[in-house]
Design a protein around this nucleic acid. Sequence first.
DNA 1: AGATATTCCTGGAGGC
DNA 2: TGCCTCCAGGAATATC
Length: 268
Amino acid sequence: MPELPEVETTVRGLERVLLGKHIARVEMRRGDLRRAFPPDLGQRLTGAKVTGMGRRGKYGLIETDRGDTLVFHLGMSGKWRVDPGELHPHDHLLIETGDGRRLTLNDPRRFGSVDLVATEEVDSWGPIGKLGTEPTEIGSGMLHELLRGRTAPIKALLLDQRIVAGLGNIYACEALHRAHIDPRRAAGRLSRERVARLVEAIREVIAEAIEAGGSTLRDYARPDGELGYFSARFSVYDREGQPCACGGRVRRIVQGGRSTFYCPRCQH
DNA sequence: AGATATTCCTGGAGGC
DNA sequence: TGCCTCCAGGAATATC
């Protein structure tokens, strides 16, 4: 389930293979993901040189010297495979570099997307233009202001990409646990101090996940050739019924159709 | 406008 | 073993 840390790790992995390299060949195998692939994706990428790599929220960015940026989203099952041996059924896009490396975008559930956007328009481009602040850049005063008057549970608003960009279900749960905040609490009723604690927790959880992902990345050229995803020991996520560090028991509830895991003993 | 529900899709888990 | 149902998730869209 790629959230910000997994996308960041993916981008760093792709950077080693792509940055400064020419794209020799592009093969669109199945283009009907969330959106159809741009029909001219192949011709606009073929022969181009990759001049930069980046990330915004959960979107990965591959910038070329033609003024285009490939914007990808991994949805929930997407991943890039580096030098895959043979192609798999869900390898929807294949990119070959001038020095013979191969990359495939694999996404069984096809919730992901691939778009080609003029580089100078990326920041204002539809989905990215609507995104809120990066977790690393948001201040507690700013978040407190954004949450003011909101009656929805804090958990639901942490998943709203227009407020903070990049959190998904896992890290929203983990951050709330670390900040000792009850996920059901109305977002607008959190004190300034608790919002500050939440911001700190979000930053820590994200940073640790990226660090752990980076260490997995060191051996990303494993036999299966896949980029390694962060698989940490979560404190609460997917741990229903198991003990919390405080001695409580992790509970699962449903909010907005999504599972929330939290500890009733230490989250208030 | 804000909150909530529904939709897309496939693989894996669990039930019988 | 095999078949069935259900569930996971992000983001767009619909509905209250």
